[in-house]
Design a protein around this nucleic acid. Sequence first.
DNA 1: GCCAACGTTGGC
DNA 2: GCCAACGTTGGC
Length: 233
Amino acid sequence: MPRVRKRPAGAARPDKEGPAGKRTNTEKPGEASAKVGNSSLQETSASRDRGKNLSSCWLMKSEPESRLEKGVDVKFSIEDLRAQPKQTACWDGVRNYQARNFLRAMKLQEEAFFYHSNCREPGIAGLMKIVKEAYPDHTQFEKNNPHYDPSSKEDNPKWSMVDVQFVRMMKRFIPLAELKTHHQAHRATGGPLKNMALFTRQRLSVQPLTRGKNGSRLLITCHSDREFTCTSW
DNA sequence: GCCAACGTTGGC
DNA sequence: GCCAACGTTGGC
């Protein structure tokens, strides 16, 4: 039930502050900005990449426009993240098991695309990175929080969250329509976005993207120079 | 364990 | 605001 807006696929939504408010910040961001090599968006499983010792890349959805859920505004845009102290916030509210498991698989410094959903212009707005690995989502225990889960016990929390830090905006906003166009073309050609979870697992709010391998044609690449380019279309 | 009812997600 | 997709619930 909850939606998380920082939503999970059933997931989570961050709340803004809210009563339960949340979004606290945490930890210090690292220093390095990381680099992440190139990450292509695709579908492969994170665990597979991890087995290869490659860091994963993720896509996380949040709603950038105001919407009340149980009286609480669940709006949380990338600009809201950037405005947080240390540009860091916890990604709470995910209440879908699959999305939660992806949160638990995230490692420090891995990058995630910040996706704006349920809004006038859905698409990828920017990049953030994981600055604290999974820990219990406190909002599950807060009765006034839209994502309160009375079935979860303090000594055995069901839901997890991570802390994320703003990295940068996309050099150019990548609209859902554009991603969809490529996804459809790739379904026919076997291209890299043919199984992109954004389209194949429609309601999943936290999803893995496949990291490109050297020499492969990447769909979307995050370069260490912080540029964002589309190289294969 | 099946599956219909129901609730949520999220594009349009 | 509509509604298709799809996850969850709960009776049986």
